[in-house]
């Protein structure tokens, strides 16, 4: 263990405690994060390949996965557009209660998902504040896929805003000014100067919102209706399989989702590196 740590060390530092702090960190991370996640994959390997494929490609599972990924994608895309507008307005314009709206963005981070879930369900139910307005138009939100979408938009918004906001804030005024002095129209400046600077952050925010939405459970299950093959999301199906004691099924679905999360995490890391390079903060 000690020699392993010494091998890891690149440069001796005058600050004491390298071995013990890294050792403690690695031990704790292994116990609380690595081993539990490894157990999931270990359990998956106990399934035969055919069995695994059969579980994952069963119509109900496929539908749940498609629903989770598809709606997460739609919600993240929605947040990309409205998140960008919100960032622009919050950074560039002055209006009453600007600071309050800025703080409000974090509500979906801070509000427990179950609370968000029942609040949204109540709002969009046919007798709710918003649902009663939509009902005469023939739009049903609660207990449909649209309801899931609304919940996923709710929980994903802060990811886009909080990723893009600092980049727009730090954007040098000189860049826009020089574009203007070079004869660029406002639209050209936004399209050619500002937008390209924001792209890495926008993609990162999108990926973060997407990753969060794929695995979301609490805010969705109340509003979803949870009909198999209609409005049943993948995390819920995992729980249903667990309650049926079909551990293998639960594990297989979880493994697929976990691999997807890892891939997303990798993409997010690459995007963030790109973003930092763009911002010149090597």
């Amino acid at each position: 263990m000690v020699s392993g740590i010494l091998l890891l060390r690149r440069q001796p530092s005058v600050v004491p405690g390298f071995g013990i702090t890294l050792g403690v960190s690695l031990t704790w991370l292994s116990l609380i994060i690595l081993i539990p996640l490894a157990a999931l994959f270990l359990k998956t390997t106990e399934l035969s390949f055919e069995r695994f494929v059969a579980i994952v490609t069963s119509p109900r599972t496929l539908h749940a996965l498609e629903l989770s990924f598809g709606l997460a994608l739609a919600a993240a895309a929605t947040n990309l557009v409205f998140g960008l507008i919100a960032v622009w307005v919050l950074v560039r314009y002055e209006f009453p209660a600007r600071r309050m709206f800025d703080a409000v963005i974090d509500i979906p981070f801070a509000l427990p998902t179950a609370v968000a879930g029942i609040a949204l369900t109540n709002l969009y139910a046919e007798n709710g504040w918003i649902g009663s307005l939509l009902a005469p138009l023939g739009i049903k939100v609660a207990f449909t896929q649209l309801g899931i979408f609304v919940a996923l938009v709710f929980i994903g918004l802060p990811f886009v805003v909080r990723t893009v906001q600092p980049v727009l804030q730090d954007l040098e005024a000189e860049l826009e000014e020089v574009a203007a002095t070079l004869g660029a129209s406002r639209w050209t400046t936004i399209r050619r100067v500002i937008f390209p600077t924001l792209v890495p952050a926008l993609l990162t925010g999108f990926a973060l919102a997407f990753a969060r939405a794929v695995g979301e459970y609490g805010s969705v299950i109340f509003i979803a209706g949870n009909l198999p093959n209609v409005s049943e999301i993948a995390p819920l199906l995992i729980i249903i399989r667990l309650e049926e004691f079909r551990y293998a099924d639960a594990t297989a679905i979880a493994a697929v989702m976990l691999v997807a999360s890892f891939i997303l995490l990798l993409i997010i890391n690459l995007l963030q590196r790109w973003s930092e390079r763009r911002a010149g903060k090597r």
Partner: peptide, 15 residues
């Protein structure tokens, strides 16, 4: 952060 909450619970059931 990137693991679904449901999976975060499931892993402990598996252990």
């Amino acid at each position: 952060f990137s693991v679904s909450p449901v999976i975060s619970g499931l892993v402990f059931i598996l252990l």
